[in-house]
């Protein structure tokens, strides 16, 4: 008798649980959704998140808030995402540098990449090779020639060890057979200031945040690191065009991820909503004004992008001895 009751209770609980779960999925979203951003307010990541959030809110019928959890190169935001329930109410709006690099560089890694699953890619930003206005070269070809003729003279800046700027430059040096000395700074601002003052002569940067300086001549763009030229510096060739770095396209991606256990229907719904948000002309315009390109697309496309990036970056980090610090 007791056993029967116990079995019935167990069955009921299971049924209730299953029902609630399905109900939760069907009712999704039924409360506020939080987007975690791993950088302080004001950067491109944060700005784009705040751009997309209201549009998502409109379509989901629930408030979508952006919460900044800066620190540990995205690690704090990652932790926040992984500690929240896998119910689609906590999203991490991340960048490839936060998603990929710390998981290769740090031992133990701050989180496991496969504990997360992609929701949607949002945008990507083409890079540019920037040079100080006082540098004695203005194109990629001149730069390579100068670097080969004067080994150990040039310095390149970055926003930190293992940052996008650092990795991109290492890839360039590796493929072109030149060597410059790495001078890391504490963030993009100081690095740009150093570039302008000619403390470092070149830097790999993202086109969007450098556009003001390119336009008023305080830095030179000597090559566009993408497959298409840019309207900010129309006369500058892409690395691909020069033939020195064929197909070189080390872009910087931004997108949403959630916990891997999040149910498929919820992920699909979020993906749809993000796609629609990105199709809004106002949103598209802002993103393009910042010199980024809208992505969108299926979740697995985003995964391919960041996993490919991881595969390309790992050998560089290994070569630099930056794995397992």
């Amino acid at each position: 008798m007791i056993r029967a009751l116990a079995a019935a209770a167990a069955a009921l609980t299971l049924a209730a649980g299953w029902a609630t779960a399905t109900l939760a999925q069907d009712n999704y979203p039924s409360k506020q959704i939080t987007i975690l951003v791993g950088s302080p307010p004001g950067g491109p990541t944060d700005t784009f998140a705040r751009l997309v959030a209201p549009e998502m809110s409109k379509r989901l019928g629930q408030t979508v808030v952006v919460e900044n959890r800066p620190g540990a190169a995205g690690g704090i935001a990652a932790q926040g995402t992984l500690q929240a329930p896998a119910d689609g109410y906590t999203l991490w709006f991340t960048t490839t540098s936060h998603l990929v690099i710390p998981t290769i560089m740090r031992d133990p890694p701050p989180f496991a990449r496969d504990a997360l699953r992609p929701v949607a890619g949002v945008a990507y930003g083409p890079g540019a090779l920037l040079a100080s206005p006082k540098a004695p070269f203005s194109t990629l070809e001149e730069f390579v020639a100068y670097a080969k003729a004067h080994p150990d003279e040039l310095n390149f800046g970055s926003s930190g060890v293992g940052s996008n700027a650092h990795i991109v430059m290492e890839r360039i040096m590796d493929q072109l057979g030149i060597k410059l000395t790495h001078v890391p700074y504490n963030g993009n601002g100081p690095a740009m200031a150093a570039l302008m003052a000619n403390e470092v002569q070149v830097m790999g940067g993202d086109l969007g945040s450098a556009r003001g300086n390119i336009q008023d001549g305080t830095v030179k763009a000597i090559s566009i690191l993408a497959l298409d030229r840019s309207s900010i510096a129309p006369g500058v060739k892409t690395a691909d065009e020069t033939g020195l770095l064929p197909g070189f396209n080390p872009v910087f991606y931004l997108g949403f991820v959630v916990r891997a256990e999040t149910p498929d229907p919820i992920v699909a719904k979020l993906n749809g909503v993000v796609d629609e948000a990105l199709a809004e002309p106002a949103v598209k315009e802002q993103i393009e004004k910042a010199q980024f390109v809208v992505l969108g697309g299926a979740p697995e496309e985003f995964r391919k992008l960041y996993e490919d990036d991881a595969a390309a970056t790992r050998p560089i980090l290994e070569k630099l001895g930056l794995v397992g610090k």
Binding site: G212, Q215, D216, G217, Q286, K289
Partner: peptide
């Protein structure tokens, strides 16, 4: 930058 102005020496 959002307003389309590039802060800088100009």
């Amino acid at each position: 930058l959002v307003h389309g102005m590039a802060p800088g020496s100009s």
